[in-house]
Nucleic acid binder design. Sequence first.
DNA 1: GAATCATGAGAAAGCGTTTTCTCAGAGCGT
DNA 2: ACGCTCTGAGAAAACGCTTTCTCATGATTC
Lengths: 348, 348
Amino acid sequence: MGRGHMARRNTNRRVGIADVAEKAGVSHATVSRVMNGNAAVDPGIAARVRAAAAELKYQPNPVGRSLALGKTDTIGIVVPDLANPTFQAILRGLSIAAAQDGYRVLIADSSEVTSEEAILAGEARRRCDGVVLCAPRMADAELEELAPTLHPLVLINRTTVATNTPSLSVDYGQGIQELAQHLVSLGHRRLVFLSGPEHSASNRQRLVGLDKFRTEHPEIELQMLHGGSNFDSGHESTEAIIASGATGILAFNDLVAMGLLSGLHERGIRVPEDISVTGFDDIPFAKYTTPPLTTAAVPINELGSLAWRRMREQIQQAGESSIQAQDEFSPRMEIRKSTAAPALKPAS
Amino acid sequence: MGRGHMARRNTNRRVGIADVAEKAGVSHATVSRVMNGNAAVDPGIAARVRAAAAELKYQPNPVGRSLALGKTDTIGIVVPDLANPTFQAILRGLSIAAAQDGYRVLIADSSEVTSEEAILAGEARRRCDGVVLCAPRMADAELEELAPTLHPLVLINRTTVATNTPSLSVDYGQGIQELAQHLVSLGHRRLVFLSGPEHSASNRQRLVGLDKFRTEHPEIELQMLHGGSNFDSGHESTEAIIASGATGILAFNDLVAMGLLSGLHERGIRVPEDISVTGFDDIPFAKYTTPPLTTAAVPINELGSLAWRRMREQIQQAGESSIQAQDEFSPRMEIRKSTAAPALKPAS
DNA sequence: GAATCATGAGAAAGCGTTTTCTCAGAGCGT
DNA sequence: ACGCTCTGAGAAAACGCTTTCTCATGATTC
């Protein structure tokens, strides 16, 4: 029961450098030289080699190449949930930007299983020249320990104390405060924050932002409701939202808001007449909901390409662990139709 | 100006199998054996090796491993546009299913540049153990020529004459006919098909489906309008749609339909009162548009995981080019609120 | 015209694994 | 007690490439 022991010796081996060397009547070394244009090689011989390579349709084996070069021209990205449009957009931006520089991206979806993150990140790192960790849910301590292992690393939505890891972050605290402020200025007095995944750092940022908001607006009632990060958790929160008696709902993100919108619609609650709802992120679909969603826009398209730029900088510096850029974005308010003045002042 | 010539000889080399071997007082070979559990090795020695490996936190280098094993435990996927939720869903399904079997996925986005597809696919294939080609736009002839090169390969939304390539397809022709039929049964007599990317095979399938529809319903006026596959192309078609005088619009897919919805809304055209609009695919957001979109649902979540299953089957068979499954899905009608009876019978 | 140099190609040593090959030593039967 | 098989570990080859090292050849200089 050998595992394919004969496949190796087969004649239908892929064409390798040796074949073109033989055909061109030169050594492997020379073939390698002309393929990579590294050293000077006689134009005549070079032409012969190129002709042989073309005729045999020779393409260097990237694995052999990677082993010799110590690099794979690939970077890894680990995301908590590939179903989330925010992460999809980041992935896309990263992939396109990296491709422009001849790099590919390997994906790893932790499916919100926190304990898998470090493992996935490690595996990805070993296969790739670098890793971007997107909104990791792991504890700070674990991240601190893991980060040096992963270098070159770029963090999205998290930071490390070590300054040699670039990070891209969004001021969620600021954004959620602005959204709350927006609701208040419309006349809402009873708000609910439908919180996100427990271990999400961006959720914590929202919470501290709201704490600040509370101290600045002691007259406003602000309840916290536990939720999740997707449609379903928004939808499932419908009853609790209704029971809360609040008129202004701050959903964790656009997805949750959309789920909630649908739940409220099913229950015959009108938005924004009866209840105002806000999202977060401004995913491409936010403007097409019923009604179009008021949200805090995160530059999700830039995030991916900037992540690549930061990664590239590190790869090029190769080892001189210098201090790296910490980019922070401020969300931009996107007022649409899911928020309006409350119909009736609640009895108070 | 050597290219990092000294990094190689550095002492801070990653810990390799040799280090473990030395620490455990055995040979590389033995370490490899215990790490892979391939051959019988004395329990005492095995324990010693494992202890050494653990202490040094040794993790086998996947590149070296890949070279020796001739496999990378990675598959590639090439998609025409990572911004499209359909492809995102396929990618996600593929990634999750593959991860379950210890495989990773490498992505390549051709950005709808047809000429890049073959190159990207080839590169991906060389780096991976297989490739899934998702809705390739390339010509049939090119695909026929490329397919054998790429094996193991699984095709999504395309087929090859060679029966040893599994393919997953959706009966777009059937789906679009049902949508057209739906509009007709609501009373519409003037329809428009807002077509998709020129080289999209699924677009061609829709076209032949509509040809059939035409012969079956000669009394119905059906115009063809050239469009694209995303929001913007739907949005840009707004004027042409209005000018067409049609009351029932078959958009290429949900994205186009959503763009159109938004365009019509801006122009004050009511949907479905003035114009009915249908999409295709049933992306997760289709039920949250204004109004919720009538569409033909494609099982996008299954597609990815099934693609992996087909890929795995081929990888396991390793070479015995047997005849492969050709899976075909029938779209399911999803009647929502974007379609209704036309307000007025057009003069005829 | 001999000594020096630049040029460029081949030989060989990696890169980090796995796996075959080889062989030492232990266990067994007669 | 001798030879046989069997177990298991090390040596070495293989995987496919890049790059250093080495050396031959032809060009240059005094």
